[in-house]
Design a protein around this nucleic acid. Sequence first.
DNA 1: CGTTGGGTTGATCGACCTCAATAAAAGTGG
DNA 2: CCACTTTTATTGAGGTCGATCAACCCAACG
Lengths: 245, 245
Amino acid sequence: MSVQFSALISPVNCPNHGTELDCAHCGVRSLSVCGALHDDELVAFEKMSKTISFNVRETLFEQDEPSECVYNITTGSVRLYKLLPDGRRQIVGFALPGDFLGLALSERNVFSADALTPVTACQFSRSTFSEMLDEKPHLLRRLHSIASHELTLAQDQMVILGRRTAEEKVAAFLIGLRKRWGRVNASNLHIPLPMTRQDIGDFLGLTVETVSRMLTRMAREKTIVIVPDGVRLLDVARIEALAEC
Amino acid sequence: MSVQFSALISPVNCPNHGTELDCAHCGVRSLSVCGALHDDELVAFEKMSKTISFNVRETLFEQDEPSECVYNITTGSVRLYKLLPDGRRQIVGFALPGDFLGLALSERNVFSADALTPVTACQFSRSTFSEMLDEKPHLLRRLHSIASHELTLAQDQMVILGRRTAEEKVAAFLIGLRKRWGRVNASNLHIPLPMTRQDIGDFLGLTVETVSRMLTRMAREKTIVIVPDGVRLLDVARIEALAEC
DNA sequence: CGTTGGGTTGATCGACCTCAATAAAAGTGG
DNA sequence: CCACTTTTATTGAGGTCGATCAACCCAACG
């Protein structure tokens, strides 16, 4: 992981020298917006982008601030959240490699984003990106398809938040993450959890303690094993039954 | 209301005779996808659509069924919901006049939709509509902008579901509806509630009883008045404070 | 080696749910 | 127009799931 990471952030040292090499060899291209582009378009596309990296806990952008850029995550994970004035927090999603941030193309950011792990991303000026959408309808089509998918996921999350028990929430969370990691990473029984228990709680509408208790319970019942930085699923069928029902 | 309604459903009696009159005089055009079209495009657009009406409780489409059509609501309200196998229900939204159903353009419906009141809508074949998007990038752009907005609303709803108290949920619900009715209907202190208390509960992750109790409490404290088919806001600032915080 | 930030575990509390009864409203058919 | 049923809304009493509060563990780190 650390090897892969340092290899991928190397372009950061010369951010204005976008070479063809990056996009052509990008592991997440097929998953991303860029997957919609032909090889020749990709060269122009790459010139408009800048590889950028963030350290752990570093902020990509903040809620309500003017939205200057959009991002395509290449490595690492990002948490996306909204804060209430009194400090309550709702995490609206976790961005993984291949995910696009800035779908709304709105004047101001509708949530905050910060890095859970070291992160690399392709950064585009929002206005440049928006102009590109007017020139390349198939890119817009792709973006719309991604946004629709996100909307569907958000609606699934509404079911989880509104109508499921703590145990079902945690099970659904694990199943959802497993599916998403599966797009990036073949191993699908080990689920990396780069976020804290607090983050999971703020995503599921639970407290840290409840998340911890549910995970320990599942571990006690041999449904999962808690490992450093994640969990390993032992009884996928059981977790899916909890999540689906 | 009943007069307006019967006037608007008249085209239903001759569904294949879309006349220019409808779109040109449509009260919600500027709010809808169709707002993106020029007058000349509108004629072609209209030919592809069919005015359709639904009675109270009638189903527009059901979750997981193949998605044949997309709809643009012209009058009435629709509830959109997901069911869990054990009967628990999460309402993911209410569609009002001007709202578009079928943003995802997916093969199968991701939620069910049925009419809360008599409803009229413009119906398009999904495939026809999708082809039209390829020909008219500005229509796609409009659709994407609507989808992004819906995504933002869904994320706001996640905050409500995950991190707010029962009273705040009901307050946020009223404020949200007020804003949306304001686009259709100028009167903004009277808020029509075409849905039942059960529906509101299933939207907010509460039970009927809790919704009823919160509304009665707000009425007792002179924040609102409960009227037939809706509420009237007395102290908007107070409700907004509850919703915002 | 003290400090700090996660994570776990236990005891208690309370917001909301559940269950039950009643009231009010809306259909329905004569 | 009125009995009758059905649906929706309200209100109360009591129970419970997850929150809160508090203690403790452990690993990372200067």
